[in-house]
């Protein structure tokens, strides 16, 4: 009798242990985040997978990272491939105006915090000293949907009475990945006379020793504007959005996440300094720029 009772107790305990040992993962809801590709899919994944894991840990939801090409972003978002978005500020405005996304948090990186600027640069000693000197010169822009690699500089030129379509020898956009770095190097080594360079890239390249601050002349620079932005699709569970926002704002340099069995520092991996809570109205200067430059979402044909 006693042996039977002991056997029963043993079986119950064993079952309890088995149940307790079960991982809860997989039972949690799955939410997809679309990340706009920066330079390449591999680089974007490397940068933001730890952040995605961190969010999963903090929010209690299995977030899945979806790297998306800039030009496919709106189409894939519309198709419902992902509920949360991580894009540059111009793409955020396009999604906001066209699809009604709600801002969650803005990324902090570089000297201007959650903002950065676009600059028009020339090589020092090239004879180009002021913005008016770029008429008839060869200019390189960043990708067309880049707020500080295209939009801001285009706007600066229009404000100075220079029409990039008519007043330059030509302008081009470097092909492939790492466009911003390519055009900065392009100016340094004489492939282009002038370039539309995001200040963030200038800062990073100078910090990494790839360029020296004295190599270039900044001919014009925009006011700082917000840059990378997390947003949520209209109708996303407000409680989830709140939790994601809390987790992003609480992110600290020491926070880590596990990727392939290795614990990585989230901020270091993503090259960011944290997140801030900017109101949507802080993006109005970009809206104004887009209207002046005739860019989406305000483009008129």
């Amino acid at each position: 009798m006693r042996i039977t009772q002991l056997m029963r107790l043993f079986i119950v305990l064993a079952l309890l242990l088995v149940v307790a040992g079960c991982k809860t993962e997989g039972k949690r809801p799955v939410v997809k985040i679309g990340y706009m590709l920066c330079n390449s899919e591999e680089e974007t994944t490397q940068r933001f997978l730890p952040l995605t894991r961190y969010l999963s840990d903090k929010v209690g939801v299995d977030f899945v990272m979806v790297p998306v090409d800039t030009h496919d972003f709106e189409k894939r978002f519309k198709a419902g491939e992902f509920a949360l978005t991580h894009t540059n500020s111009l793409l955020y405005i396009i999604l906001r105006e066209n699809e009604g996304v709600e801002i969650i948090a803005s990324e902090k990186r570089g000297k201007f915090g959650a903002r950065t600027a676009g600059a028009i640069i020339a090589r020092k000693g090239s004879g180009i000293e002021k913005l008016a000197d770029i008429r008839g010169k060869r200019l390189a822009f960043g990708p067309m949907l880049a707020p500080t690699g295209y939009l801001a500089e285009y706007d600066l030129m229009l404000a100075a009475g220079i029409n990039p379509e008519n007043d330059l020898a030509f302008y081009s956009i470097p092909p492939g990945s790492y466009k911003h770095e390519k055009l900065i190097y392009g100016v340094l080594y004489g492939k282009y006379d002038v370039a539309a360079a995001p200040v963030l890239d200038l800062e990073t390249m100078a910090r990494e020793g790839k360029i020296a601050p004295d190599d270039f002349v900044v001919l014009a620079q925009s006011k700082p504007i917000p840059y990378c932005t997390f947003a949520a699709a209209k109708g996303t569970d407000p409680a989830l959005v709140k939790k994601v926002k809390e987790a992003l704002l609480a992110l600290k340099p020491a926070d880590t996440a596990e990727v392939d069995g290795e614990r990585l520092k989230v901020m270091k991996a993503a090259w960011i300094d944290g997140y801030e809570e900017l109101p949507d109205s802080d993006y109005d200067p970009i809206r104004e720029m887009a209207k002046r430059v005739n860019m989406p979402p305000y483009q008129k044909y």
Partner: peptide
């Protein structure tokens, strides 16, 4: 008037 260059120099 080269504020951005000054900022990059200052970073160093």
């Amino acid at each position: 008037g080269k504020n951005q260059e000054a900022l990059l120099k200052l970073d160093e």
